[in-house]
């Protein structure tokens, strides 16, 4: 699988480290959030069959974090 680093261009996936799903919203009022909503923020993730926004870091290259949208079925990647 080739992953497009926004700086270095397409590189082999073994140069990258996965950072989990992207666009997970931080509690808007953290002081008021109860245990259940914290648990939801920290541990609960959608597990779609299809497009998923993800965080990746080009760990063996420029070491920058970025987002992409990857199709979990086809592995096809589109820029976030």
């Amino acid at each position: 699988m080739l992953i497009p680093c926004p700086w270095c261009g397409e590189r082999e996936d073994n140069e990258f480290t996965y950072g989990g799903p992207a666009q997970v919203a931080y509690p808007s009022d953290p002081e008021a959030a109860d245990d259940a909503s914290w648990a939801r923020y920290v541990f609960f993730r959608a597990n779609p069959k299809g497009k998923l926004a993800e965080r990746w870091v080009h760990s063996a290259g420029c070491r920058r974090w970025f987002n992409v949208v990857r199709d979990t079925v086809t592995h096809q990647i589109t820029p976030a």
Binding site: R11, A60, G61
Partner: peptide, 10 residues
Amino acid sequence: CAQTLLAKAQ
């Protein structure tokens, strides 16, 4: 220039 893997070494 490029930062990459040569075999398994960065």
